[in-house]
Write a protein that binds this DNA or RNA. Sequence first.
DNA 1: GGCGTGTGTGTTTGCGTTCACAGTGATCTC
DNA 2: GAGATCACTGTGAACGCAAACACACACGCC
Lengths: 366, 366
Amino acid sequence: MPPLTGRRSGQPGRVSGGARSRTAGGRPAVMADVARLAGVSAQTVSRVLNDHPYVAEETRARVVAAMLELGYRRNLTARALVTRRTDTIGVIAFDTGLYGPASTLFSLEQAARERGYHVHVATVPDLSEEGFVDAVERLRGHLVSGLVVLAPQRGAVRAMAGFPGDLPAVAVEGGAAPGLTSVVVDQVGGAVQATRHLLDLGHRRIAHVAGREDWIEADARLQGWQQAMADAGLPAGPVLPGDWSARSGHEAGLALLAAGVPVTGVFVANDHMALGLVRALAEAGVDVPGDVSVVGFDDIAEAGYLRPPLTTVRQDFAEVGRRCVDRLLHLVEGPDGSPPEDALVVPATLVVRASTASPAGEPPRP
Amino acid sequence: MPPLTGRRSGQPGRVSGGARSRTAGGRPAVMADVARLAGVSAQTVSRVLNDHPYVAEETRARVVAAMLELGYRRNLTARALVTRRTDTIGVIAFDTGLYGPASTLFSLEQAARERGYHVHVATVPDLSEEGFVDAVERLRGHLVSGLVVLAPQRGAVRAMAGFPGDLPAVAVEGGAAPGLTSVVVDQVGGAVQATRHLLDLGHRRIAHVAGREDWIEADARLQGWQQAMADAGLPAGPVLPGDWSARSGHEAGLALLAAGVPVTGVFVANDHMALGLVRALAEAGVDVPGDVSVVGFDDIAEAGYLRPPLTTVRQDFAEVGRRCVDRLLHLVEGPDGSPPEDALVVPATLVVRASTASPAGEPPRP
DNA sequence: GGCGTGTGTGTTTGCGTTCACAGTGATCTC
DNA sequence: GAGATCACTGTGAACGCAAACACACACGCC
């Protein structure tokens, strides 16, 4: 039993004398130290740590006391080596300061922690397949139990096509990637609600400002808008390009004004763009909601305090994070026969504020 | 050398025949497999992996080829066990969806990756010392090389007082915690700039809406405002409480109006509150910047598209993340005699937009 | 009284990697 | 030509932990 035989310990002499805190020599205590102090075998210490049955209460107490006295901390890398698992979830995120991914990440960590898991993060600098592969490799090296991918771009889904099948993974807004289960917010449903809200107010000519190209959410929101318009038997108005930024919303507003299209309502794919759009309209003397109604998407923290307070669609990112963990751990721990039902959908809810009203001279539909 | 002696491998027979990809039995390849295929010892494989000198070019090539053929991936937990390090940075974050911490986290990961480090995240549910200790313990268990603490509350600093001295750590906005180096944005300087900007425009009665109690940034911004007012020989106007939210800014606006204090300028501790304040003023028919000038702090993405476009102070979170990693790795890798100069300050810059103007009838100061 | 079962503990072994050390030839030095 | 140095490679022993196995003892049962 070499640990304290001196050759390696920096301090000479009186080794097994009085192990006050830590171990003589300052080396962090290991199981053998605890075992020695408690007068049991290392295996018994392990049993105490892992809550195995069949450890006498008296023994357990002695071991716990020894651990406390030595300030023992179990070495998770050693444990991982032998158990071949780290109880760690790997999160792959596209490098971004956007509100959604960040919130999801935090709630995800919280949910993971509650279930005894840790979170290891890897961001990808761009959407190349290479970047993803690299991120996956790094996380695999750490023996993560599973992966959560927070990269809601189609490019990301494409890059994930070559995903290793042996590692459980959940994608957030992952679209319909084959073999990859996903947790998504009901983007289409949210967009339908937003558009219907405008329709119900009596609007007939409704434009859409789209989100960044290649983003799955942008597609879904566009689709929801189209669907709602079609359901109402109305032609879908103009679609203006955007990139999620307030700046692009502003530009869309200017383009809308320049085109002279007689719209009375606009469904904008996110709040930041909605805000830019409202500003462009205001600059041109167009009142919101007096002349044009605007609906956003996201329900950013300040949405209620914009001018006017923004009608928008709320996404529950905290719920997304929790569900991701649920889903992933189900895959990880569950009987492997678990069916990966295609996607878990978190509902989106319309939040009506003051940026929408009935168009002039037109009463709301019953 | 047991790895392929059959007893454990699922597949019977013909083991060392043709290891096409992975190893027979599907078990991931380990060093010994690579070594066998390349006709060298495991030690040589290790040397190739770690770029040791003194490996013949021809040998290296053979090893690399074998690794490729077997799809070998080095097991970082095993490596960590023996080297006693994981090249991982632990990040402790207060559970929040706020813009600053999230941006910092992402840029931090990027900087870490560039330097060959990984990032492990632990959030704390509240500011209790217990929560911090728990987070630190979990990260230590993973043998992180160092810690970055993203918790800019005084409570956090207090909780960190009992920080283990043997683990290098860097605090973001960590105030003056003893023995803990920190990276901070020049909050005071930013606040001074913001206030001076108002003073230069000719404002004399300037109020302040404070940030959330217990936050270091809130204190610093308050202090900067006081300092600038004092330097100008003016009495500091009223201070209104806030909690960073747009809602609290709105309330502050109402309170200001109710109090009937004749201020012409307001320095608000963050943009979200500034936006709420502007809204409250607008509702009361007070024009910004016509009647009152407003300066925020943060430069959120949409600041330029608010009504009016917000004059504010920008914080470079990406830079903060990079500096954190620099600093931490200096501590981790550097000669341990490295002096921990107290705090590394990242400058803040004033961004002048349209929410500020000279007060009515008063020309700007030269 | 022998057998099974349940409870509690120790011994041995191996997880996959790196470190310390010990070689091997070859080339160089005086 | 004996030794020293260089370039390269292999051997054994850890690292700290948990699984497999073995063992010891107590109790109940027929």
